[in-house]
Amino acid sequence: MSRARSLAITSAIVIAALYTAWAQGPTANRPVEPTPRFADGTPNLGRVAGEKGVWNVPYIQNMGMRIPGPDGKTAAERGSAAENGGRGGAKAEPDVPFLPWARGIYDYNSRNNSRYDPEGYCLPPGGPRLMATPYPMEIIQQPKHKRIFMVFEGATHIWREIYMDGRPHPQGDELNPTYLGHAVGHWDHDTLVVDVVGFNENTWLDYYGHPHTDLLHVVEKFTRPNKATLHYEALIDDSGAYSRPWTVAWNIPWSADGELTEYICQENNRYLLKLTDDFGQPVLGR
């Protein structure tokens, strides 16, 4: 083997190794650290006292590519040509059990490149999209108060509160539809299970524009298999838009030196001021 060729191959290997290390996050070069726990053994899903750190929520644009198959892997993890799918509409996503109207809406959102995405209006993500909108997030457990807070830098600087005190969801009209819904949680061994209902219909499931209705019921499972990884899984159960429940999953990496900063989306949203409808009329100001 020529020296130049050998050098080229070595370079490629070194670059690939370093890239992998980078892609896995800043802590990947260190030994895998175990799941942090509280004195009673409950996993700590947040910071360790005295340290920095936030969860770097990834940009999951298309949940249709995040459905675990029989091998447990999603299309995105299998190295599909386009990690986010290619804007092929509902036809390109046979694993998403669209009802006919949801299929039509999804195709419309696909064709116009998510032009009317509620996040473009600076509205909050709803349902599982909280964990798919790429801004840092903190989890704060309050065992004495039987609550868990999740604090999100973006998309609209919001928090959610998960009741861990065993209360049921409000029933009937007592359940007021909201952007983030009503969330109750419990621990199943090392898994935090969160059951959420009471969503309004002002949000999309993801950037690509999978719709949902106010019948949406989300069951989330959070695990921290090691200090650097939060594994997220969400069951999307919405008989108003899908013919059966479907599950999406991805990992959220820990950023050991990250901290939250302020992000107020509504400050100067020029996109919305310029946005026109399909007939060329301004969406606002009429």
Binding site: I15, Y19, W22, N56, Y59, N113, R115, E119, G120, A155
Partner: peptide
């Protein structure tokens, strides 16, 4: 060379998302 490449990738890592780019 590798360090420079990684430096560039690292620097470009955090990406914000607000509205549709392609629209």
């Amino acid at each position: 060379v590798a360090a420079v490449v990684i430096g560039l990738l690292r620097a470009a890592a955090p990406v914000a998302a607000h509205h549709s780019f392609a629209a």
